[in-house]
Amino acid sequence: MNLLFAEDDELLAQLFQLQAEILGYQVLWVANGDLAVQQALSYQFDLLLMDIQMPVMDGISAMQLLRQLGYDRPIIAMSAEEVPATGFDLVLKKPLQWPELQQQLAKFKAIPSIELELPTELKEAYLAHAKQLVQQLATLAEQQNWIDFMAIVHQLKGSAASFDLAPLGQLADQLQKEWKTIPAGQRTERATYFLEQCKACKLK
Protein backbone atom coordinates (compact mmCIF):
# COMPACT_ATOMS: atom_id res chain seq x y z
CA MET A 1 0.00 0.00 0.00
CA ASN A 2 1.28 3.45 -0.95
CA LEU A 3 0.71 6.19 1.65
CA LEU A 4 0.85 9.96 1.22
CA PHE A 5 1.75 11.60 4.56
CA ALA A 6 1.08 15.35 4.86
CA GLU A 7 2.75 16.78 7.99
CA ASP A 8 4.78 19.96 8.58
CA ASP A 9 6.77 18.51 11.50
CA GLU A 10 9.81 16.98 9.78
CA LEU A 11 10.91 14.76 12.69
CA LEU A 12 7.40 13.41 13.19
CA ALA A 13 7.28 12.68 9.46
CA GLN A 14 10.62 10.86 9.63
CA LEU A 15 9.35 8.72 12.52
CA PHE A 16 6.15 7.85 10.67
CA GLN A 17 7.99 7.06 7.45
CA LEU A 18 10.51 4.81 9.18
CA GLN A 19 7.90 2.86 11.13
CA ALA A 20 5.45 2.60 8.23
CA GLU A 21 8.13 1.24 5.90
CA ILE A 22 9.06 -1.41 8.48
CA LEU A 23 5.42 -2.52 8.28
CA GLY A 24 5.59 -2.80 4.51
CA TYR A 25 4.08 0.51 3.44
CA GLN A 26 5.57 2.83 0.84
CA VAL A 27 5.46 6.44 2.06
CA LEU A 28 5.83 9.86 0.44
CA TRP A 29 6.04 12.82 2.80
CA VAL A 30 4.88 16.33 1.91
CA ALA A 31 5.06 19.34 4.24
CA ASN A 32 1.86 21.27 3.43
CA GLY A 33 -1.67 20.90 2.16
CA ASP A 34 -0.99 22.36 -1.28
CA LEU A 35 1.63 19.70 -2.01
CA ALA A 36 -0.71 17.06 -0.61
CA VAL A 37 -3.39 18.05 -3.14
CA GLN A 38 -0.90 17.98 -6.02
CA GLN A 39 0.47 14.57 -5.08
CA ALA A 40 -2.94 13.05 -4.28
CA LEU A 41 -4.27 13.98 -7.71
CA SER A 42 -1.53 11.86 -9.29
CA TYR A 43 -3.54 8.87 -7.98
CA GLN A 44 -0.33 7.02 -7.09
CA PHE A 45 -1.40 6.65 -3.43
CA ASP A 46 -3.92 4.33 -1.84
CA LEU A 47 -4.45 6.46 1.25
CA LEU A 48 -3.72 10.02 2.41
CA LEU A 49 -2.93 10.92 6.02
CA MET A 50 -3.45 14.65 6.51
CA ASP A 51 -2.33 16.84 9.39
CA ILE A 52 -4.80 19.64 10.05
CA GLN A 53 -2.56 22.59 10.93
CA MET A 54 -0.07 23.08 8.07
CA PRO A 55 1.38 26.08 6.22
CA VAL A 56 0.33 27.20 2.73
CA MET A 57 -2.92 25.20 2.92
CA ASP A 58 -4.36 23.55 6.04
CA GLY A 59 -5.56 19.96 6.09
CA ILE A 60 -9.28 20.70 6.06
CA SER A 61 -8.99 23.06 3.08
CA ALA A 62 -6.85 20.49 1.23
CA MET A 63 -9.37 17.72 1.91
CA GLN A 64 -12.29 19.90 0.80
CA LEU A 65 -10.51 20.86 -2.43
CA LEU A 66 -9.73 17.22 -3.20
CA ARG A 67 -13.34 16.18 -2.60
CA GLN A 68 -14.58 19.03 -4.83
CA LEU A 69 -12.29 17.72 -7.57
CA GLY A 70 -13.80 14.26 -7.24
CA TYR A 71 -11.03 12.59 -5.26
CA ASP A 72 -12.60 9.47 -3.72
CA ARG A 73 -9.70 7.67 -2.06
CA PRO A 74 -9.44 7.47 1.76
CA ILE A 75 -8.28 10.61 3.58
CA ILE A 76 -7.40 10.29 7.27
CA ALA A 77 -7.18 13.43 9.40
CA MET A 78 -4.52 13.78 12.12
CA SER A 79 -4.96 16.44 14.79
CA ALA A 80 -4.28 17.22 18.43
CA GLU A 81 -7.64 19.03 18.47
CA GLU A 82 -11.21 17.95 17.77
CA VAL A 83 -11.90 17.88 14.02
CA PRO A 84 -15.24 17.46 12.21
CA ALA A 85 -15.19 14.11 10.42
CA THR A 86 -17.15 15.40 7.39
CA GLY A 87 -15.12 14.64 4.28
CA PHE A 88 -12.57 12.50 6.10
CA ASP A 89 -12.77 8.71 6.23
CA LEU A 90 -11.25 8.68 9.71
CA VAL A 91 -9.95 11.14 12.31
CA LEU A 92 -6.90 10.13 14.38
CA LYS A 93 -5.90 11.95 17.55
CA LYS A 94 -2.31 13.20 17.80
CA PRO A 95 0.10 12.13 19.10
CA LEU A 96 -0.33 9.07 16.93
CA GLN A 97 -0.21 5.76 18.80
CA TRP A 98 1.19 3.00 16.61
CA PRO A 99 -0.94 0.11 17.90
CA GLU A 100 -4.09 2.16 17.19
CA LEU A 101 -2.74 3.34 13.85
CA GLN A 102 -1.96 -0.21 12.73
CA GLN A 103 -5.44 -1.30 13.76
CA GLN A 104 -7.07 1.52 11.81
CA LEU A 105 -4.94 1.06 8.68
CA ALA A 106 -5.76 -2.64 8.75
CA LYS A 107 -9.35 -1.67 7.95
CA PHE A 108 -8.15 -0.47 4.56
CA LYS A 109 -5.67 -3.30 3.97
CA ALA A 110 -4.55 -6.06 6.31
CA ILE A 111 -0.99 -5.58 7.56
CA PRO A 112 0.50 -7.80 10.29
CA SER A 113 0.87 -6.15 13.67
CA ILE A 114 4.51 -5.55 14.59
CA GLU A 115 5.85 -4.00 17.78
CA LEU A 116 8.08 -1.12 16.80
CA GLU A 117 10.96 0.50 18.63
CA LEU A 118 11.80 4.18 18.46
CA PRO A 119 15.25 4.57 16.83
CA THR A 120 17.77 6.12 19.22
CA GLU A 121 19.06 8.55 16.59
CA LEU A 122 15.60 9.90 15.86
CA LYS A 123 14.75 10.16 19.54
CA GLU A 124 17.95 12.12 20.18
CA ALA A 125 17.22 14.38 17.20
CA TYR A 126 13.77 15.15 18.57
CA LEU A 127 15.16 15.76 22.05
CA ALA A 128 17.54 18.36 20.63
CA HIS A 129 14.65 19.84 18.65
CA ALA A 130 12.46 20.00 21.76
CA LYS A 131 15.22 21.79 23.68
CA GLN A 132 15.40 24.38 20.91
CA LEU A 133 11.63 24.82 20.99
CA VAL A 134 11.69 25.39 24.75
CA GLN A 135 14.42 28.01 24.28
CA GLN A 136 12.27 29.69 21.63
CA LEU A 137 9.33 29.61 24.04
CA ALA A 138 11.41 31.39 26.68
CA THR A 139 12.27 34.16 24.21
CA LEU A 140 8.68 34.49 23.02
CA ALA A 141 7.45 34.67 26.63
CA GLU A 142 9.86 37.53 27.32
CA GLN A 143 8.47 39.29 24.23
CA GLN A 144 4.91 38.39 25.24
CA ASN A 145 4.44 37.06 21.71
CA TRP A 146 1.64 34.71 22.72
CA ILE A 147 0.49 33.79 19.20
CA ASP A 148 3.83 32.23 18.25
CA PHE A 149 4.26 30.92 21.81
CA MET A 150 1.04 28.93 21.65
CA ALA A 151 1.79 27.71 18.12
CA ILE A 152 4.91 25.98 19.49
CA VAL A 153 2.95 24.66 22.48
CA HIS A 154 0.49 23.13 20.01
CA GLN A 155 3.38 21.53 18.11
CA LEU A 156 4.76 19.97 21.30
CA LYS A 157 1.31 18.71 22.24
CA GLY A 158 1.01 16.87 18.94
CA SER A 159 4.46 15.33 18.72
CA ALA A 160 6.23 14.90 22.09
CA ALA A 161 4.56 11.63 23.12
CA SER A 162 5.55 10.02 19.82
CA PHE A 163 9.19 10.39 20.89
CA ASP A 164 8.80 9.02 24.45
CA LEU A 165 8.25 12.49 25.94
CA ALA A 166 4.63 12.01 26.98
CA PRO A 167 4.95 14.26 30.10
CA LEU A 168 6.02 17.16 27.88
CA GLY A 169 3.06 16.58 25.59
CA GLN A 170 0.72 16.44 28.60
CA LEU A 171 2.07 19.75 29.93
CA ALA A 172 1.51 21.35 26.53
CA ASP A 173 -2.01 19.93 26.36
CA GLN A 174 -2.83 21.25 29.82
CA LEU A 175 -1.52 24.73 29.01
CA GLN A 176 -3.42 24.87 25.73
CA LYS A 177 -6.67 23.94 27.49
CA GLU A 178 -6.15 26.62 30.16
CA TRP A 179 -4.75 29.41 27.99
CA LYS A 180 -7.94 31.18 26.91
CA THR A 181 -9.11 31.44 30.52
CA ILE A 182 -5.85 32.95 31.82
CA PRO A 183 -6.09 36.75 32.28
CA ALA A 184 -3.64 38.71 30.12
CA GLY A 185 -1.79 39.98 33.17
CA GLN A 186 -1.10 36.45 34.41
CA ARG A 187 0.08 34.88 31.16
CA THR A 188 3.77 35.64 31.68
CA GLU A 189 3.68 34.00 35.10
CA ARG A 190 1.85 30.94 33.74
CA ALA A 191 4.26 30.66 30.80
CA THR A 192 7.25 30.82 33.15
CA TYR A 193 5.79 28.03 35.27
CA PHE A 194 5.20 25.95 32.13
CA LEU A 195 8.83 26.40 31.06
CA GLU A 196 10.05 25.34 34.50
CA GLN A 197 7.95 22.18 34.22
CA CYS A 198 9.31 21.49 30.73
CA LYS A 199 12.87 21.46 32.00
CA ALA A 200 11.97 18.53 34.27
CA CYS A 201 10.77 16.39 31.31
CA LYS A 202 14.04 14.65 30.46
CA LEU A 203 15.21 17.64 28.44
CA LYS A 204 18.47 18.14 30.33
Rank of each mutant, 00 (worst) to 15 (best):
M1H: 01
L4E: 02
L4I: 06
L4T: 03
L4A: 05
E7D: 14
E7L: 09
E7Q: 11
E10P: 09
L15V: 12
Q19A: 10
A20V: 02
V27A: 03
W29V: 13
V30M: 02
N32D: 13
G33D: 05
G33L: 03
G33T: 05
G33H: 04
L35M: 10
L35R: 05
Q38W: 09
L41R: 13
S42Y: 06
L47H: 00
L48S: 07
M50K: 00
D51P: 02
Q53R: 14
M54L: 07
M54C: 05
M54G: 03
P55G: 08
M57Y: 14
D58W: 05
I60H: 04
Q68D: 15
R73H: 02
R73I: 01
M78H: 08
K93G: 08
Q97Y: 09
E100T: 09
L101Y: 00
L101N: 01
L101D: 01
K107I: 09
P112E: 10
I114P: 04
I114A: 10
E117V: 09
T120Q: 15
E121A: 15
K123N: 09
E124S: 08
A125P: 06
L127P: 08
H129F: 12
K131Q: 11
K131Y: 15
Q132Y: 08
Q135K: 08
Q136M: 06
L137I: 10
E142F: 12
Q144K: 11
N145I: 08
D148W: 07
D148P: 11
F149P: 00
M150F: 06
M150V: 07
H154F: 11
Q155I: 15
L156T: 03
A161W: 07
S162C: 07
A166D: 06
L168Q: 00
L168P: 00
Q170D: 11
D173L: 08
Q174E: 11
E178T: 03
K180F: 09
I182N: 00
A184N: 15
Q186F: 10
R187L: 04
T188V: 13
R190H: 10
A191F: 14
L195W: 14
Q197A: 08
A200S: 10
K202L: 15
L203F: 08
